[in-house]
Design a binder for these strands. Structure first.
Length: 417
RNA sequence: GGAGAGGUUCCCGAGUGGCCAAAGGGAGCAGACUGUAAAUCUGCCGGUUAUACCUUCGAAGGUUCGAAUCCUUCUCUCUCCA
């Protein structure tokens, strides 16, 4: 088996392949150009979106060439795969903006600038060829190769048939197949990768290329990443774990990984870090230091996405906060989410409820009240259980700040100006 | 085009004139236990200037002392027929 392909299998990415042997042989021959589709319907990706890119990272290092295809054209239609509702349509302008920020985020895992011994990486947008399509021409040249009977047997369409599926969405498969065809023609792309839910679309693309007289192409799908508790990967209590630091702070990002289930740690280390497998193997089996593994996972992952500085900050903040009574220096507070409060305002005293609801710890006054009466609100080392309490200068700590805490793990820093 | 069923709080889902801010479950938050894990148990779970008031049961009107519940129109979804 080809080395790079084997790496993906060993790290737990691979779910299925259209032809392992032939693909392996092709990859042995030399660099292969492959692509993955990216959905530009949001301004930020979340970690669940990143799986194919982590896989691509390994492939790029092995010298293969990558294409990230932004679905600027298809996003204007919507993808039925696994979606229970029709997506809202976006303007071209929105899609362009989203694509730009998404490229930056993908760039943390694969290298668009290439490098010594590495494959190249580029981004394309299928709007470039989809928007100009002529309906009749498309039907004549592409549409005639598709069988509705066959399409209806696909699981993703079956589900949608129960709930309703619009004609535009039904066409998605043709467009994605067409994308593959175009990339094959123009860029010599031979392989499409994607989530397990893309299997049908990928296979259709391969068939289309063959029918149009192209080379044999391949599909490789990845496991849908699940969590031991059955939640969707990348979703947290707060919603999706976005990569954009403005939407999900690096500190919280670190915490998300620090708090994964025991059963998930090793699997995630393989998928979401670049650590060599023999190093990860140490954490397998009974008796392994599971907490050390989680810390490593959180740090590595934060480093990859947000950079080493942020990862260090998040880690030292976390260590200070969770270790017994170690002082919390100003330095290791930096990674924490914070707001500022005027000194003069604090002199007058601010109601606890007011203060908490200004932070992300409580969205509303009522929520803050619940937190306080429930015994989960802390100011510094002091538990506040009276909702009428006011917080004033006497609560300032050695660093001249106030640390709010909700429950055991959620911290917020109040900086005085 | 015709007939029927239905739209309830984050999700599922009860509720068919006052006892409804609306059962139950899930999710979530907090407390206990722990390892910043899981499981379990307990409390909370629309908003506010908080023993009261305000906004919510697809939308707009109407009946009534009183409507998520009754009537009218509109709208969306689903099923069956053509």
């Amino acid at each position: 088996m080809n080395q790079a392909l084997q790496t993906l299998i060993d790290r737990g990415f691979v779910k299925a392949c259209t032809d392992y042997d032939a693909l392996s042989a092709l990859m042995d021959e030399g660099p292969v150009t492959l692509y993955v589709g990216v959905d530009p319907t949001g301004s930020s990706l979340h970690i669940g979106h990143m799986v194919p890119f982590f896989a691509m990272h390994h492939l790029q290092k092995a010298g293969h060439n990558l294409i990230a295809l932004v679905g600027g054209g298809t996003a204007m239609i919507g993808d039925p795969s696994g979606k229970s509702e029709m997506r809202k349509m976006l303007t071209i302008e929105q899609i362009r903006e989203n694509s730009a920020s998404i490229k930056d985020q993908i760039g943390t895992v694969i290298d668009f600038n290439g490098g010594e011994g590495m494959g190249t990486a580029v981004m394309h947008n299928n709007a470039d060829w989809l928007l100009d399509l002529n309906y009749i021409t498309f039907l004549r040249e592409i549409g005639r190769h598709f069988s509705v009977n066959r399409m209806l047997t696909f699981e993703s369409y079956k589900q949608r048939l129960e709930r309703g599926l619009s004609f535009v969405e039904f066409n998605y498969q043709l467009l994605q197949s067409y994308d593959f065809h175009i990339l094959h023609q123009k860029e010599g792309c031979r392989l499409q990768i994607g989530g397990d839910d893309q299997w049908g679309n990928i296979v259709s693309g391969i068939d289309l290329i063959r029918k149009l007289g192209g080379e044999q192409c391949f599909g490789l799908t990845f496991n849908l990443i699940t969590r031991a508790d059955g939640h969707k990967m990348g979703k947290s209590e707060k919603g999706a774990v976005f990569l954009d630091p403005a939407l999900y702070s690096p500190y919280d990002f670190y915490q998300y990984w620090r708090n994964v289930n025991d059963e998930d740690v090793v699997r995630f280390l393989k998928l979401f870090t670049f650590l060599p497998l023999d190093q990860i193997a140490r954490y397998e089996g009974e008796g392994a230091d599971i907490n050390e593994a989680k810390e490593l996972l959180a740090w590595e992952q934060t480093k990859i996405i947000h950079g080493k500085d942020e990862a260090d900050k998040a880690r030292s903040a976390a260590q200070a906060l969770f270790s017994t009574d170690a002082g919390i220096s100003t330095e290791n507070r930096e990674g924490m989410p914070s707001i500022t409060v005027e000194r003069s305002e604090l002199e007058q005293g601010i109601g606890v409820l007011d203060l908490f609801s200004r932070t992300d710890l409580a969205k509303t006054n009522s929520e803050a009240r619940r937190l306080v009466t429930g015994g989960g609100a802390w100011v510094g080392q002091q538990r506040i259980d009276d909702p009428r309490s006011t917080i004033d200068l006497s609560f300032l700590d050695e660093a001249g700040e106030i640390l709010l805490r909700a429950g055991k793990k959620r911290y917020f820093r109040i900086v005085i100006v």
